[in-house]
């Protein structure tokens, strides 16, 4: 007879399973670990592998426009800014889905991912990053970290699953 049927047929066994459930609950009530990362105070270090906000190295870019062509969300577009001869890509974060195709296709590695994703803008225009100094080529930093949040590293642990240790 399966365990489920024993629970249904045998009231004593059912009481035992009730007790097991309550005991498990009590064990966790007094155990230490928590999964929550208290975000603005602690910021997870996403590591170099993360596909976050994208950064342009304008000096490397050869204006081949492959990145704009591959973008599945039409977030990347080529812009010709006044006073410049060549076109350079700009990104619209209203549309970007962080697929990273643009980074992968750039033949000269002029685009790179940064491990930052928690950015908010005040208006819609602010989400469009043109290839201007201080915009698309900007060194990203998590705003939570800038305001004093501590960086935590994610570690795998047999007992607690994910551990978040301050660096």
């Amino acid at each position: 007879m399966s365990i489920a049927d024993r629970i249904r047929r045998n009231p004593l066994y059912s009481l035992k399973m009730h007790a097991a459930a309550i005991a498990t609950g009590l064990r966790y009530l007094f155990a230490k670990p928590r999964m929550t990362v208290r975000y603005p105070e602690y910021v997870i270090d996403l590591g170099r592998n993360y596909r976050g906000m994208i950064r342009l190295h304008k000096d490397k870019c050869i204006s081949c426009s492959l990145c704009a062509q591959v973008c599945p969300a039409s977030a990347m577009k080529m812009y010709k800014l006044p006073g410049e001869k060549k076109m350079y890509p700009g990104i619209n974060y209203q549309r970007c889905i962080f697929c990273g195709f643009c980074v992968d296709i750039c033949p000269v590695n002029a685009l790179e991912h940064t491990p930052v994703h928690d950015i908010a803008e005040e208006d819609m225009e602010g989400m469009i990053y043109l290839p201007l100094p201080g915009r698309f080529d900007r060194e990203w930093k998590s705003p939570a970290e800038e305001e004093g949040g501590r960086k935590v590293k994610v570690e795998f642990d047999e007992e607690e699953g994910l551990k978040h240790e301050p660096e």
């Binding site: 489920a4 629970i7 399973m17 097991a20 699953g161």
Partner: peptide, 17 residues
């Protein structure tokens, strides 16, 4: 970790009467 947790899943949820 997951193997251990699955046992607790059974106790608190799946085989909870």
């Amino acid at each position: 970790y997951m193997e251990r947790r699955l046992e607790d899943y059974m106790k608190i949820f799946v085989y909870n009467p």
